[in-house]
Design a protein around this nucleic acid. Structure first.
Lengths: 185, 185
DNA sequence: AGCAGCGGAGAACGTACGTTCTCCACTTGA
DNA sequence: TCAAGTGGAGAACGTACGTTCTCCGCTGCT
């Protein structure tokens, strides 16, 4: 392994953590697995993240920024405010179809650790709140009643959960059609 | 502990498993916790369930029968087919408000074990498929187009997940209003 | 060249837990 | 009363894993 500064080692560690935690769940991945996949030694891993839980938090935090960034970037390409809302579900469909898609990382983490780790639970709530606020902004921009935002949020959550369990992209299209109906009355 | 036949011991074990697995997650509950909470000795636990995974499967199976039974019983009290569909969301609201509610047991289990236990993953899919089929029956009875069933299913899933994460009963009411809109056009 | 320190490999340590085993009290049938 | 078996309490065993420690080579400075 070539020399690597702390920032690069941190990225390598988080890359490996994201791939393994998301793909196999958090509890079934050991720190030694992270070391093997990242090439970052245990000693350095523990310098960067004093305990596994902090690595988990950093993983969720970085993924939150990236995930919402990707969504917002996709949506922002549309001009029409109504189209932007529908674009959310189109982006979900593309995500569901990606290799290795295994549902929503936060919903999965909550099922695994929500009852035992208050910090993870708080991060999940923050992420979902941010998504809800984002949708509320789109709904307001489209001049739709505020109650629609909560409804669209539930459709998106249901689609993520169902796509994760069934492995199909169809929930995104179903949710999109429901969203269209809810928007037009 | 008084004498107890196998059937009673099995029920005691499953009662404890359900309370602990649902409340704290599966991986964080040890077989010794089950023994302590149920009063069934380890030896007998292993006679009844040769491995922890089989206890987990029995827990999910028994809960599936009971959960869907409770829902169907509540819904069946309504006469009008359209009212029956809305009653699903009313039942969800009552469930969300129960003490110790912590989201959908199957969604949580899927987050925890979906990637590592094929049998648990299959049980989750079966449970969700059964719920979807049940909703499809209600939708057909109400003379609504079949596409509505999938939309209502996503709303229910989104409500369960969101209520679990936020601890609020509100998602049930939001989903109910969305359902009403989707049904009336 | 010599040395101080960083970093890697991997052993070691402690704990948790799934599973099995030992020992013993008690019941039951003759 | 005695023998055989059932079942409970809890010790024991093996493994996995989070975390720390040891040893050693390499690098960079003087």
């Amino acid at each position: 392994m070539a020399v690597m500064d702390s920032a690069a080692a941190r990225e390598q560690a988080l890359d490996a953590a994201e791939e393994l935690f998301y793909g196999r769940g958090i509890q079934s991945v050991g720190m030694d697995d992270i070391r093997g996949a990242s090439g970052v030694s245990l000693k350095r891993l523990y310098q960067l993240f004093p305990a596994k839980e902090q690595l988990v938090e950093a993983y969720l935090e970085r993924r939150d920024v990236r995930w919402r960034g990707r969504l917002a970037e996709f949506v922002a390409r549309r001009e029409d405010p109504g189209e932007r809302i529908l674009a959310v579900f189109e982006w979900l469909e593309g995500w569901f179809g990606e290799d290795g898609f295994r549902g929503c990382a936060w919903i999965n983490s909550y099922g695994e650790l929500g009852a035992t780790s208050a910090r993870v639970a708080a991060q999940v709530r923050a992420h979902k709140q941010a998504l809800r606020d984002y949708l509320a902004g789109l709904v307001a921009d489209a001049g739709l009643p505020g109650t629609v935002a909560g409804q669209l949020f539930l459709l998106a959550e249901g689609a993520m959960v169902t796509a994760g369990i069934t492995g199909s992209t169809e929930p995104a299209r179903v949710a999109r059609e429901a969203a269209r109906t809810l928007m037009t009355r």
